[in-house]
Design a protein around this nucleic acid. Structure first.
Lengths: 193, 193
DNA sequence: AGTTTTTGATTGACTCGTCAATCAATAAAA
DNA sequence: TTTTATTGATTGACGAGTCAATCAAAAACT
């Protein structure tokens, strides 16, 4: 055989190229040839390793989700105390890397895909569940029984702020986004409802 | 055949069919033939009246935006007092019609399009600006100088809650969505920051 | 060590389908 | 007859997926 163990290398390159192409086109209308070309291989090889276009795109999506999850996890282990944990989640959500052209494109098209693809929908639910349970776990010591409700509010606001920032042409304002959500959190903590 | 004055009728039918097809496919990957067929005409006629696919899709998007704007306007004229105006905007945003399959699909794909199409981006900015100024106008009597910031928070939360509801399979919970945002508003009003 | 066999890696060429856009032709008002 | 409405047929381009063939290293064998 030629150089052995090419498969994981090629797959990784194709996944990366997939995300890049999605970013370049802004949509999922990317050809397998484009992806393969960017990865430096033939389109036939992409089919050989992934089986079909659908699976290539799915691998790309999964990668974006995984990257995000890793960022949150890293931020959490470096945090201290309940409030620190919430702040870490918020900060990780608005990290500059998340506003990269290709990452934004991946997320938006992920939403679109989630309407019709059970696979995409399931992945999205997993992400939302993890976000929610992370938030609840951090909020419980701070506000007790109100934690689930506040977590829902924070999660929604993170999504809303993210989309607005992402679509707002020009440099995204990570700090502004973060403080908007943190102000909301502060207010919730101050409030006795 | 030609009964005169068909143009506006056909155009309206094609626009409606466009939105329906976008809803059916969940994406902008709809063929002109599909749209034309649903509208009961040939694809050639669609090209004849609109010039090209791009313009057909754009007309569909503009229609969705216009429908939303009309709903908000209607809710505003029927409202009473500052607080009533804010509630009206929130309620209009989560009206059941906005969760229709095709409307959701249109909005999500609108976001996607806004990344790369200056036209779509411009339309989106117009919508956001109007939303913001409506909110500020209603909030000013309630919280004065804090109005712009709170308006930003409410707008973001509306978007975030909407997306979560829209992508959450099953019947959307209009009331739940509304109360989530209204609770946020109540808290802002109660708060002296 | 040298030869042979095996097999992963890789591609160019091809098939089959689809789709946007165009056009020439037809029909019916004005 | 000039204009408006309307379509079937056609075209030209493009893209997913398949396949047979090639290449080169590694393993097996002598």
């Amino acid at each position: 055989m030629p150089k052995l163990g090419m498969e994981p290398i090629r797959k990784a390159a194709l996944v990366e190229a997939t995300i890049a192409e999605i970013g370049a086109s802004g949509s999922l209308d990317v050809t397998v040839s484009q992806i393969a070309k960017r990865a430096g291989v033939s389109s036939a090889l992409a089919h050989h390793y992934f089986g079909g276009k659908e699976q290539i795109l799915q691998a790309g999506m999964r990668q974006v989700l995984a990257d995000f999850g890793a960022k949150v996890r890293a931020a959490l282990v470096a945090s201290k105390g309940p409030r620190g944990r919430v702040d870490a989640i918020i900060a990780a959500s608005f990290e500059v890397g998340n506003f990269r052209r290709d990452v934004v494109a991946a997320w938006l098209n992920f939403y679109v895909l989630a309407q019709t693809s059970p696979d995409a929908s399931r992945l999205l639910v997993v992400y939302q569940r993890r976000m929610h349970s992370n938030l609840v776990y951090a909020l419980k010591p701070l506000i007790g029984v109100r934690a689930p409700d506040v977590a829902r509010g924070i999660a929604a606001m993170i999504d809303g702020v993210y989309i607005r920032q992402a679509l707002h042409g020009g440099t995204p304002d990570s700090n502004g986004a973060r403080s908007l959500v943190q102000d909301y959190l502060d207010m919730c903590l101050r409030d006795q409802a």
